Simulated assay, not measured.
Amino acid sequence: MTDKNKIMLVASPGGHFVELSLVAECLQDMHVMIVSTYDEKPSFMYGDEYFQVSDFSRDNAHVMFKVIRESYQILKKNKPKLIVTTGAAPGLIMAIVGRFFGIKSIWIDSIANSQYISLSGKIAKAFGIKVFSQWESVAKSSNSEYHGKLL
């Protein structure tokens, strides 16, 4: 497997991870690395390797610094060609840290965000990360891209 085929998929547990699993199904000819906060990769998720990062949110934002360090270590060692995330906070950090390594990233905003792009999606755009909405009207109003829905 060449380095060109290394893709890192990052998501928080729950709906974000379920949406990401649909992306993973389409990448079975690639070397897929999964990153999440689960203790181990859920059995329903396709992926060649699994890495765990700490979870955080606005309520415990200080943990963000630990996630930055974890993301840096994972990316430095594994060097994917692309990061794809469906959110939330750990996916945003991985995508931002990836920018410092020159790694392109795609942010797919959750289908739950049917009225507005998420705060994390707005932050991703500010860092030059390509943002996709699963709602055409949200994509237009947020100057994001729309190519359909995952669910």
Rank of each mutant, 00 (worst) to 15 (best):
40 E>Y: 01
89 A>D: 13
29 D>G: 06
78 N>H: 14
75 L>K: 03
142 S>G: 08
141 S>R: 13
85 T>V: 06
102 G>I: 11
73 Q>K: 15
140 K>Q: 14
58 R>T: 08
148 G>L: 12
61 A>R: 07
148 G>W: 10
102 G>L: 10
1 M>N: 14
45 M>K: 00
88 A>C: 12
34 I>F: 01
34 I>P: 00
58 R>D: 10
39 D>W: 00
95 A>V: 09
98 G>H: 10
133 S>I: 05
127 F>D: 10
51 F>T: 02
36 S>V: 01
44 F>N: 06
143 N>Q: 15
54 S>Q: 08
70 E>L: 12
119 L>D: 09
101 F>E: 08
48 D>Q: 00
99 R>D: 12
111 I>Q: 08
2 T>M: 07
62 H>S: 14
97 V>N: 11
6 K>Q: 04
75 L>H: 02
105 S>E: 11
90 P>H: 05
67 V>M: 10
149 K>W: 05
23 V>H: 03
136 E>K: 14
66 K>G: 08
54 S>H: 07
125 K>M: 15
108 I>T: 08
147 H>P: 02
128 G>W: 14
138 V>T: 12
56 F>C: 02
136 E>Y: 07
38 Y>W: 00
123 I>V: 15
131 V>D: 08
129 I>T: 09
116 Y>H: 15
35 V>P: 01
58 R>Q: 10
130 K>V: 15
53 V>M: 10
40 E>S: 09
92 L>H: 10
59 D>S: 03
125 K>H: 13
147 H>I: 15
29 D>E: 11
115 Q>K: 15
101 F>S: 06
40 E>I: 01
75 L>Q: 04
21 S>M: 01
126 A>D: 09
108 I>F: 13
12 S>V: 03
53 V>K: 05
136 E>A: 12
2 T>K: 10
108 I>G: 08
123 I>H: 05
71 S>E: 05
61 A>Q: 04
110 S>Q: 07
85 T>W: 05
17 F>A: 07
77 K>N: 14
76 K>M: 09
36 S>I: 00
47 G>F: 01
35 V>I: 06
24 A>C: 06
101 F>W: 06
147 H>M: 15
69 R>L: 10
13 P>D: 03
83 I>R: 06
53 V>D: 09
74 I>N: 03
13 P>H: 01
21 S>E: 02
132 F>Y: 15
114 S>D: 15
129 I>Q: 06
28 Q>D: 00
72 Y>M: 12
61 A>V: 13
12 S>E: 08
70 E>K: 08
131 V>G: 06
138 V>F: 13
98 G>R: 08
38 Y>L: 03
113 N>G: 12
141 S>E: 13
3 D>R: 06
111 I>R: 03
30 M>W: 08
101 F>T: 08
118 S>F: 13
106 I>G: 11
93 I>D: 04
17 F>S: 02
16 H>V: 05
83 I>H: 08
140 K>V: 12
76 K>T: 05
56 F>H: 04
17 F>C: 05
85 T>L: 04
95 A>C: 12
13 P>Y: 02
